[in-house]
Simulated scan of single mutants.
Amino acid sequence: MSCRRLLFIALFCAHFSAWAHKASDSYLVIDARGSEVIAQWDIALRDIDFAIGLDGDGNGEITWGELRTRQANVAAWALSRLEVQRGGPCPLKLTALQVDTHTDGGYAVLHLAGACPASAGDLQLGYRLLFDLDGLHRGLLRLTVDGTTHSAVLSPTSGTLRFGPDAVSRLTQFRQYLVEGIWHIWIGFDHILFLLALLLPAVLVHTKEGWRGVARFGAAWREVLWVVTSFTAAHSITLSLAALGVLALPSRLVESAIALSVVLAAANNLYPVVAHRRWVVAFGFGLIHGFGFASVLSELGLPADSLVLSLVGFNLGVEVGQLAIVAGFLPLAFVLRHSAFYRRGVFVWGSLFTVLVAALWLIERAFDLKLLSR
């Protein structure tokens, strides 16, 4: 492989990694009791910088001083994209500004408070943060109305949502967490790359002469079924244990291990160490990926009255999201399995691309570095 090609791949991976490291999320927690409303809104510093600019000296790092200097602008920008109503508009004001760290970097923590015209009835919420700049942005909402907790993923199609003080049905809670599970596998680029790295060789067979296409679709499907089932079973175990507070691991260790799993899975395609029974690899690393999914649930919060049902819904949502990826990938890969385009372009170059991207993630996460900007 020429140095020019390697340089091109490295630059492309750096560009890809800059935006694919993690999808844009904000975390909004609202507690409405009677006419009083208090809220905490965690917004990524990189998102605020992208929208209104924070990095005054242009050095690629956002300091507390730079954030504090723009405090009024940040509050005005954020609050112009959030509407809360109960009997009429509930104007919110910034009461405090802090900084916190999530697994993907620094976040501005906006503490908000306000009062509504009415002290009873449904609460309406309109959310449109960053939707004009990033259609993939989502808001993770946990909202309590007079003691009743709701959760939702806010998207550009959400519109104005209505939440009541009455208890949410178990079916509704199950559906909410099902949708959230689907969404979070689709925006979990590291989880997707790990899964694809295991799926790439599913339509191939490794022989002494190298990789060749499988003879029948059934053989590829059985391989994929074992891989996906093993991955699902493994991450369901650790996701449940972590979400219930039975086990806990440092987030940097988990995120680094997830990146390492992607590196190893893709590298195994280039230099096969485990050419068969890849389901064992999927199960082993799936245990680590489960802790990554658990971080999402920790932000959303699990309803105390239906812990098991919500966990089942989220896990099932992840499984549905995975099967959708498989359904789109496997038939096309099977058709192209004998072609040089697939065996060299997709399989070899795709695996190399995945190794390089995941290696950048691993370095960033393990050493807490900011190699790439958005």
Results as ranks from 00 to 15, higher is better:
residue 186 W to V: 04
residue 155 S to P: 08
residue 186 W to A: 09
residue 178 L to W: 09
residue 181 G to W: 00
residue 190 D to P: 04
residue 162 R to Y: 07
residue 158 S to I: 11
residue 183 W to T: 07
residue 162 R to F: 06
residue 192 I to Y: 07
residue 183 W to C: 00
residue 166 D to F: 04
residue 155 S to A: 15
residue 189 F to L: 13
residue 176 Q to I: 03
residue 192 I to C: 11
residue 169 S to H: 09
residue 168 V to P: 00
residue 175 R to C: 00
residue 166 D to P: 09
residue 186 W to K: 10
residue 172 T to E: 15
residue 176 Q to H: 10
residue 179 V to F: 14
residue 180 E to K: 03
residue 191 H to P: 12
residue 188 G to R: 05
residue 159 G to Q: 09
residue 175 R to K: 02
residue 179 V to I: 14
residue 173 Q to L: 13
residue 161 L to W: 01
residue 175 R to N: 02
residue 167 A to G: 08
residue 172 T to Y: 06
residue 157 T to E: 15
residue 186 W to Y: 11
residue 159 G to D: 04
residue 165 P to A: 10
residue 174 F to M: 06
residue 160 T to K: 09
residue 190 D to N: 04
residue 174 F to D: 01
residue 167 A to Q: 14
residue 163 F to C: 12
residue 168 V to Y: 02
residue 157 T to L: 13
residue 165 P to Q: 09
residue 188 G to Y: 00
residue 160 T to R: 15
residue 184 H to Q: 04
residue 160 T to Q: 14
residue 193 L to F: 10
residue 184 H to S: 03
residue 165 P to Y: 08
residue 184 H to W: 01
residue 161 L to V: 05
residue 180 E to H: 04
residue 177 Y to V: 03
residue 174 F to T: 03
residue 164 G to C: 07
residue 161 L to S: 15
residue 174 F to A: 10
residue 188 G to K: 02
residue 190 D to T: 11
residue 174 F to K: 02
residue 155 S to T: 15
residue 173 Q to F: 09
residue 157 T to W: 09
residue 166 D to Q: 15
residue 165 P to K: 11
residue 170 R to E: 01
residue 185 I to W: 03
residue 164 G to D: 09
residue 172 T to Q: 14
residue 158 S to Q: 12
residue 183 W to M: 07
residue 192 I to W: 07
residue 185 I to E: 02
residue 186 W to D: 10
residue 189 F to H: 12
residue 162 R to G: 12
residue 172 T to N: 12
residue 163 F to T: 13
residue 165 P to D: 09
residue 165 P to W: 06
residue 170 R to Y: 02
residue 179 V to L: 13
residue 183 W to Q: 01
residue 181 G to T: 03
residue 168 V to E: 14
residue 179 V to H: 13
residue 170 R to V: 02
residue 172 T to G: 04
residue 158 S to R: 12
residue 184 H to P: 01
residue 193 L to W: 03
residue 184 H to D: 05
residue 155 S to R: 15
residue 176 Q to R: 15
residue 155 S to H: 12
residue 173 Q to P: 00
residue 184 H to R: 03
residue 165 P to C: 08
residue 185 I to S: 02
residue 178 L to Q: 05
residue 185 I to T: 06
residue 161 L to P: 03
residue 188 G to Q: 01
residue 183 W to N: 07
residue 178 L to I: 07
residue 169 S to G: 13
residue 163 F to M: 12
residue 174 F to S: 01
residue 177 Y to D: 02
residue 188 G to F: 00
residue 158 S to N: 12
residue 166 D to W: 02
residue 165 P to H: 08
residue 170 R to P: 00
residue 190 D to H: 03
residue 180 E to G: 05
residue 171 L to P: 00
residue 167 A to C: 05
